[in-house]
Design a protein around this nucleic acid. Structure first.
Length: 862
RNA sequence: GCCCGCUUGGCGGAAUUGGUAGACGCAAGGGACUUAAAAUCCCUCGGCUGUAAGGCUGUGCCGGUUCGAGUCCGGCAGCGGGCACCA
């Protein structure tokens, strides 16, 4: 008996696939294409289990679709710009480019060891000038089209490191490295006009039928479209001299509640608030307090609703003589609507809390249909669909929709308001004050202003000779890189030293894969053929930003002639994370899983034998040390075992727990498949032997098991139910095992066994491709399994010759009947009524009703 | 606070979408082989009850619809995720 040795076999098959260029993709109009893509990795240095799971799933789809006859594109690249490279440069003195390309080399080797069916000839890294030069070209085209603009925007500024910090680098208001208090600084920055597509990005979500509902909902909420009314109130009293010519403009979606208005509130950043703050230090102090809450949702959540009465009053548009006070309030945001609201406490919880605090009136104006005399205590009536207007003059008796329409009509007639649509979505700021990113290809000239770098001077490449010994951006410190002559007037000018947000790089790489070496962003012929991505796979953490930016970018590319379709990904799957138990020693220090062994059911330290505290199961992270290194696992068990484990048992969209016993179970199965094949070889007829005439019960049953497995596994892979596919494969293996144990002498036994083993091998191949090739060759095939078509189940063989019909009395199972499929109802009923157990449970009563579901169930009701 | 989602044995999870609840795997227990171990193979495995055949019960909790509910409806609880005090 031999064993399957992955250490020897896996590299051998990988070399063979490479030699045959089995995964190199060429456009071929005569064949249907299928583009499978997993989110490309950041080259951090080593792959982790999340990558293994992600790329295994993509590879299953790629190999399956290839076997189904599709022309498959399955590329790989590197999201190679970003801060960790600069951190490494500062901490260890290694140049970001060197650090990055070395990491890429390591990780490429690790991914290749997984046996992924990737077209490596299309590999790209976003830090290749060949790649980012085309990105710069598209930026300039977007600029020409008005899809890009500059404006002032605040950044987190670390005064000690003299650098801009990303939000995640600000911890409790301090810089992560320096510990200095972070300041807000205004910088002029570049923005992509994603809001220009807000409506389309929202509406088109409906067309993305093969996206998870959850992701579409998250994007929809993020875009946050609302329809309302912008309305202006006359300011009375000290209105003169204030911005807005004595009017306060508010935005509301509940204009139906105008008769319940008891105050207005403006943001601390509203022009009126700024003006007042400039004159009054008390107001200035209050505004500062409001801003200081800032930041996280949680902080805002806990903050008490605070207001400052400005002394201003606005006139109610429909009630003569009625006025409402204007407050500056900490819960009104300048960035949304007009930065001002009117408060109707009876129908908005925040407004109600605010009104109670400041003793403002609470007048209900909408009543539930079943409670016209509604009284508001501590809960606002916030239903904005069902209700009838009360206490509202000419609106009384209308429903909410009618009331909204009437107010909109009247406000428009008075030229005091108009319908308005608001979005939560804001334009995408892409400027980063960093070295290791794509340079923004513009020049600042004292005379000509912002001048685009001429197309023939692209790419603007990063200078290699930079130093990281000073705080701040090395590009601005570089002695000569930024200095140049203005392309328009020839005078001395400076380059932009900001680089792009790395989300820009990842917003079009999927299109670049179609033609990674082209001297245009995308080769139209290749892109026409391959795009869109048919199946995109990645973590749900990218559900909003990366996917939304990519959808925007593809629209912008469409407008500049680089894309045919607006949507880049027609199918999306978001996979769960890989988790592991956590371990701590007596001192509370985290321990690696390999430092732990189980002794008498208790976890102890491998070397010292000291007891170990087993903590929660959490997603693998270096900080908690609950990580298992894929390279170690592959060295120990082989890639196939690792691949098999990460898709077994747990549905792909859920978090999977990595366990030692689980990987051992997967390892046992690889050996089991090999053994079933190896031990059967002597009993098998030749490849392609004709179907023998003789039949036999056991052989027919085995053939049915094979064809059922083909049916089920095919369906399960199509539907991303890899864990079920795995279960079906186990069932087939169990069936083959039982058949072998029978030592069956039927004429068809050998044929049935070969068919079963070949089915097992082919169905297993997407998950365990090396083992499958090894078995395939052992079974006598010369042609590679990767070139072998996916099998089709024969419906003749899957049809059961007998079905089990459950017999119930009053809905309780009392027995079963084994009958030929399609047995007539009456016959089934008669047989059921004649059963001893049925008669017993009918207790002498007559059957009131007999429900017969064909081939399924009989229910006798007494 | 709002919006989603989930809740099935010791564990991960199945259940052809209203028709045998617990497939398959892991763990556990028993047995075979072996000098022994490993590997492998066979058997048992929701709970209660019974010598057995069987019976009762069981999919977070309460109620409803139905001949029949893990699945559909209403309410509640717990857990997880998303977010925006968004007017």
């Amino acid at each position: 008996m031999t064993r399957f040795n992955p250490k020897e076999a896996e590299p051998r098959w990988q070399a063979r696939w490479e030699a045959e260029q089995a995964f190199t993709a060429f456009p071929d109009a005569s064949r249907e294409k299928y583009y499978v893509l997993e989110m490309f990795p950041y080259p951090s240095g080593r792959i982790h289990m999340g990558h293994v799971r992600n790329y295994t799933m993509g590879d299953i789809v790629a190999r399956y679709k290839r076997a189904q006859g599709f022309n498959v594109l399955h590329p790989m690249g590197w999201d190679a710009f970003g801060m960790p490279a600069e951190n490494a440069a500062r901490e260890r003195g290694v140049h970001p480019a060197i650090w990055t390309y070395e990491n890429i080399a390591t990780m490429r080797g690790q991914l290749k060891a997984m046996g992924l069916s990737i077209d490596w000839s299309r590999e790209l890294a976003t830090c290749d000038p060949e790649y980012y030069g085309q990105e710069q070209r598209m930026f300039l085209e977007f600029l020409e089209r008005g899809l890009v603009y500059r404006k002032e925007s605040a950044v987190n500024w670390d005064p000690v490191d003299e650098t801009v910090l990303a939000n995640e680098q600000v911890i409790d208001g301090r810089g992560w490295r320096s510990g200095a208090l972070v300041e807000q600084r205004q910088l002029t920055q570049w923005f992509f006009k994603i809001t220009a597509y807000a409506d389309d990005l929202l509406k088109s979500l409906d067309t993305l039928e093969r996206w998870p509902e959850k992701v579409r909902l998250m994007q929809s909420n993020w875009i946050g479209r609302s329809e309302g009314l912008r309305m202006r109130f006359a300011i009375t009293g000290e209105a003169r001299g204030l911005p807005g010519a004595g009017e306060l403009e508010v935005y509301t979606t509940r204009h139906d509640t105008i008769f319940g208005m008891s105050f207005c509130a403006i943001s601390a950043d509203h022009p009126i608030a700024l003006e007042l703050a400039a004159k009054d230090p008390v107001i200035a102090e209050f505004c500062k307090q409001c801003r200081d809450i800032g930041g996280t949702a949680e902080a805002l959540e806990r903050a008490e609703k605070l207001g400052f009465d400005t002394g201003l009053r606005v006139r109610h548009p429909f009630i003569a003589g009625r006025e409402a006070p204007v407050y500056i309030a900490n819960f009104v945001l300048m960035g949304y609507g007009t930065g001002a609201i009117f408060g109707c406490p009876a129908h908005d919880q925040r407004d109600l809390d605010f009104a109670r605090k400041y003793g403002l009136s609470v007048v209900p104006v909408v009543a539930p249909e079943d409670n016209p005399g509604v009284i508001i205590e501590n809960d606002a009536y916030t239903d904005d669909i069902n209700g009838r207007m009360i206490n509202s003059d000419f609106l009384n008796g209308m429903d909410i929709a009618q009331a909204k329409a009437e107010i909109a009509r009247r406000m428009q007639a008075m030229s005091s308001g108009e319908p308005a649509v608001s979005f939560r979505l804001r334009d995408w700021g892409v400027s980063r004050q960093r070295y290791w990113g794509c340079p923004i290809p513009v020049i600042h000239c004292a005379k000509c202003g912002v001048v685009p770098v001429p197309y023939d001077q692209l790419p603007v490449t990063l200078p290699h000779d930079v130093t990281f010994d000073k705080p701040g951006n090395p590009l601005t410190h570089h002695p000569d890189w930024k200095h140049m002559d203005c392309p328009e007037c020839g005078a001395g000018a400076v380059r932009e030293t900001d680089t792009f947000d790395t989300f820009v790089d990842s917003s079009w790489y999927f299109a670049r894969f179609c033609s990674p070496r082209a001297n245009v962003p995308v080769d139209p012929m290749e892109a026409e053929y391959w795009m869109p991505v048919d199946q995109y796979i990645g973590g749900v953490e990218h559900a909003i930003l990366h996917l939304l930016y990519s959808r925007f970018f593809t629209r912008a590319m469409k407008e500049t002639g680089h894309a045919r379709d607006a949507e880049p990904f027609s199918g999306l799957f978001t996979q769960g994370m890989v988790t592991h138990e956590t371990y701590k020693d007596a001192n509370g220090a985290w321990l690696f899983p390999e430092q732990i062994i189980r002794r008498d059911g208790a976890a102890v330290h491998r070397e010292s034998g000291a007891p170990v505290l087993v903590g929660k199961i959490e997603s693998m992270s270096k900080s908690k040390r609950n990580v298992v290194d894929p390279e170690t696992i592959i060295a120990q068990y082989g890639a196939d075992t690792a691949r098999w484990f990460v898709v077994s048992d747990t549905p792909p969209e859920r978090d999977i727990e990595w366990t030692e016993s689980g990987i051992e179970g997967a390892w046992r199965f690889t050996q089991r498949v090999w053994r079933l094949v190896d031990e059967s070889l002597a009993k098998l007829p030749l490849v392609n032997a004709p179907v023998p005439d003789g039949r036999g019960r056991a052989s027919v049953a085995l053939r049915r098991a094979s064809h059922n497995a083909i049916t089920w596994v095919t369906e399960d892979i199509e539907r991303f139910h890899f864990n079920r596919a795995v279960a079906r494969i186990y069932e087939l293996a169990n069936g083959i095992n039982s058949f072998i144990n029978l030592d069956c002498t039927e004429a068809a036994a050998g044929y049935a066994l070969r068919e079963a083993l070949e089915s097992l091998v082919i169905l297993t191949a997407p998950m365990m491709p090396h083992l499958a090739e090894e078995c395939w060759r052992a079974l006598g095939h010369d042609r590679l399994l990767v070139h072998t078509p996916w099998p089709k189940a024969d419906p003749e063989l899957t049809r059961a010759d007998q079905v089990t019909i459950i017999v119930q009395v009053n809905g309780k199972r009392r027995g079963e009947l084994g009958l030929a499929p399609g047995t007539p109802r009456q016959e089934v009923e008669n047989l059921a009524l004649a059963m001893e157990a049925v008669i017993r449970h009918m207790d002498g009563k007559p059957a009131r009703k007999v429900v017969v579901v064909a081939d399924r169930i009989v229910n006798v009701v007494v």
